[in-house]
Amino acid sequence: MIEFERVWKRYSKRRDEWALEEISFHIGPSEMVFLLGPSGVGKSTLLKLITLEEMPTTGTIRVADFVADELTRQDLPHLRRRCGMVFQDFRLIKDLTIHENLAFCLRMTGTLERSVIARAVARVLQSVGIYGKRDRFPRELSGGEQQRAAIARALIHEPPIILADEPTGNLDAETGNEIMALLQRLRVSGTTLVVASHQEPLAERFATRTMRLREGRIAEDRFLRPVGTEVY
């Protein structure tokens, strides 16, 4: 599903300043992998490498059926539609309602029929529990509701992979748990999740696997529970 093979990433031209060093792993279907570690260890960079927002300096990345080295600029949108993204700051389009935010994603891929869009948006919003808020603007929702909307947007194309960058970072503990429970339901139904977080208790509770990053390297790769397990 997601495979990194001896991946190195450097932002500056200085030879000794590596953001990530010698990263190799394979993540399969229905895994929920937590990338752990304090700020600046390379968690977000690793997520950006998966969606190819950043290109590796060396090494090979395979995501779904895509191989980074073989991709053209035109292929990137197709890769990104296979990877739903959830951010700490939600990144919803502020001047669109929740319904419009999701509809926008469908129009982007050529779905222009209103009734088809309405059905798809309703289905996804119901699955994350905010269908009743569909006509609100993001600023009119609580943090937890905005994150649910962001998850709904990530799900609209039914991607096999969801990447979440500190998805509970802006939420209180209770709401954070609700969001993680929602993500877990996706995992159980077959979606692969990669979550960058510094909240270890959440990882212990929900992850099937944790990767601890230290100074740009994977310091620890731990399998916590089988992929089919649901935690309450």
């Binding site: 969606t51 949108p77 197709h78 990104r80 993204m85 990144r91 982007m108 891929t109 990530a154």
Partner: peptide
Amino acid sequence: EEQLAIMKVIGATDAF
């Protein structure tokens, strides 16, 4: 700019 960044991350093509 912010909206464009979101669009690219969620898989908008250059043409879109």
